[in-house]
Amino acid sequence: MIAKLAYLTSPAPGRYLLNIQPFGSDDLLRFEIAQCHLANIVITGTSLALSESNRVPVTPTKENAHGSDRRQQPA
């Protein structure tokens, strides 16, 4: 199943709902989840979102910004 919408709500203190609307459906599925599941979703989701959107390709080079290699050479 692929979700058209997915979001979290808290209708009352201590109650957490995961709301999902599947593609091709007008129905909204609601699942009550425990606080530990909420924390896991938020922590893992944040980690995945940041690791995917902030990847910077690393290009190895022997020269620094000034055009010379100033690293210590092995003896």
Rank of each mutant, 00 (worst) to 15 (best):
C36F: 01
L5T: 12
I33F: 00
F23D: 09
N19R: 15
E63Y: 13
L5M: 12
R30A: 07
T61S: 13
I43M: 05
A49Q: 13
S25F: 04
Q35H: 11
L50T: 12
R70I: 08
L29Y: 05
V42S: 06
L50C: 14
S47T: 15
Q35G: 02
E32Q: 13
Q21L: 02
E32R: 01
Q73V: 15
A65W: 09
A75F: 09
V56Q: 00
P74C: 03
D27E: 15
G24Y: 03
I43D: 09
N54W: 02
S10A: 14
N54F: 08
Y16T: 07
Y7M: 12
A39K: 03
R55G: 13
A34G: 09
V58K: 03
L38D: 02
A49P: 02
A49W: 14
I41V: 12
L50Y: 09
L17K: 00
T46A: 11
G24V: 11
H37A: 12
P74M: 08
A75E: 14
G14C: 06
A49T: 10
G45Q: 05
G67M: 04
D69P: 03
A12I: 03
C36M: 07
Q73E: 09
A34T: 14
G14M: 04
I2V: 11
I33T: 08
L50V: 13
S51A: 04
N40H: 01
A12P: 02
M1H: 08
N64F: 01
N54C: 12
S47L: 15
Q35I: 00
I2Y: 02
N19Q: 12
E52N: 09
Y16E: 06
Q73S: 13
Y16S: 05
S68I: 08
G45M: 09
L17A: 04
E63W: 08
R71Y: 07
I41Q: 00
